[in-house]
Amino acid sequence: MASQGTKRSYEQMETDGERQNATEIRASVGKMIDGIGRFYIQMCTELKLSDYEGRLIQNSLTIERMVLSAFDERRNKYLEEHPSAGKDPKKTGGPIYKRVDRKWMRELVLYDKEEIRRIWRQANNGDDATAGLTHMMIWHSNLNDTTYQRTRALVRTGMDPRMCSLMQGSTLPRRSGAAGAAVKGVGTMVMELIRMIKRGINDRNFWRGENGRKTRSAYERMCNILKGKFQTAAQRAMMDQVRESRNPGNAEIEDLIFLARSALILRGSVAHKSCLPACVYGPAVASGYDFEKEGYSLVGIDPFKLLQNSQVYSLIRPNENPAHKSQLVWMACNSAAFEDLRVLSFIRGTKVSPRGKLSTRGVQIASNENMDAMESSTLELRSRYWAIRTRSGGNTNQQRASAGQISVQPAFSVQRNLPFDKPTIMAAFTGNTEGRTSDMRAEIIRMMEGAKPEEMSFQGRGVFELSDERAANPIVPSFDMSNEGSYFFGDNAEEYDN
């Protein structure tokens, strides 16, 4: 993207840094990872977990959730003011799984939030270390993106479920800051804005008074975040219109849905970061690795190297396929839920299948599930090659597409044709070009129609051997075009429920 120079890199967003050079960025990201790792080690000690239990991804998720809940100030305040039966607002906890007599047992633990905050700050040299908290939120978000298709949420806001490739980060909490905003897809931002506008339509006082002023500035800020994701002048001009509207209503909703559809071809720039579970960072720190000293990046080879040398386990339900569970977590670790499966298959070195073909449910185990038949197995999170994460949407291309997802959002900077089903997408653009945004709409449609099938995206960008740390010898991959490109292809993934 041309304006790259004016933006802070995501590592800076990730670490609240002012302008830093590459070495400083690597050190501050490393410091953040160190903090998460030290916190995780301490929690495993508190909970008396064995090494194996500490490497269980379900335990990692519970521990991450506990610290996120302990620092969720708004919710904590709300819980104190609106006490609900049987919930102690000062405590947080969740299921911890232990191996007892050759069987997995679930144990519900409860801790004072104050105590968890103390352990977290102690692991982070006394700081609140917001960057580390956001990092864990993005890992949870990436896992949700890989596990669930947001059909219901899309339909509720009037969008087409086939636009799911635009929904990265749709389950990120509001408090995820600049680093969170960077990884949100165009569809996620559109959905947040539509929800806001709908509230304004239904509630006369939404934009009024002292609160209304705050609401208005939040609305304009979200519009600017979305505008910054678009790469064409016409899309940005249309966002200006939406932002400046005196009284946002149905016309703005129409414009936003139009823009979301246009992003299936004229893709937005959305950041991709490899955020790993805390149970990967903990053992690495415990083994003596100093992330701050060595430096770390979320968008280069580092996460690949770390996963190459990590042992992570997962509980497996009786009829689940461990290899499929591994694929789910591998995609989440690489922030690749909406990437082209052919690119992923090449990088991973084994075939990556669409969601609907995987015999696996989510990673988390519900409290009512029976533990008797639970097994555990090693997650295979290694890769054959590594590639640089991208934040450009890439230019655009036609490809055989599917009944489910009709476009992709690249996660890796790797040369390819970008699949999208042009006739299906263009069919949504018939007729409606009147109104105050008509010239911009016409211009956007013209650009979409001009998108050429034979153009290559990320020209000359390749993948790298894991021994090639400096990215000196790019390998331009070859793809098996007979395979499906979309992950949520004609899909039956479970729906995400809060």
Rank of each mutant, 00 (worst) to 15 (best):
I96N: 05
E469C: 02
G300L: 03
Y97D: 05
E434Y: 04
G30C: 12
R19Q: 06
T390S: 14
P410S: 12
D72H: 05
S170D: 12
L49D: 03
T146I: 01
R162P: 10
G228L: 12
M1E: 10
Q399F: 03
I194D: 14
E375R: 02
L154R: 05
L358D: 05
G462L: 15
T92G: 13
T350I: 04
D203P: 06
E53F: 05
V476N: 01
L307C: 15
K198V: 08
L172R: 04
E494N: 14
I57Q: 12
G462A: 11
P423Q: 15
R391S: 03
N370F: 10
Y148M: 09
F458L: 13
S84I: 07
I301P: 10
D72Q: 04
I36E: 04
C44P: 02
H272G: 10
R55E: 05
P283W: 13
Q20F: 01
R382T: 02
G485N: 05
D160E: 14
C164V: 15
G435H: 03
R150K: 13
D34P: 00
L341I: 12
G349W: 10
A123H: 06
S467Q: 06
C223D: 09
G356N: 10
T215D: 10
M448C: 01
T15Q: 04
A85Q: 14
A411S: 15
D421N: 15
T171W: 01
P83N: 13
M163V: 15
N432R: 06
R118L: 14
E14F: 10
L256R: 06
G282V: 09
R195Q: 07
A22Q: 08
H82D: 00
G209M: 07
Q459S: 12
Y52M: 08
R221E: 14
M136V: 14
A123R: 12
R391W: 11
R416W: 04
F479Q: 03
E115P: 03
N498A: 06
F479W: 00
F230D: 03
T430P: 14
C44S: 07
S367A: 14
D16E: 14
A403H: 12
G485D: 02
A471S: 00
G126A: 14
R8D: 01
E454A: 14
L276K: 14
A70W: 04
A251R: 01
N492G: 09
K7W: 05
E46V: 06
V242H: 05
E465N: 02
A323K: 00
Y111A: 04
S84C: 14
R38E: 06
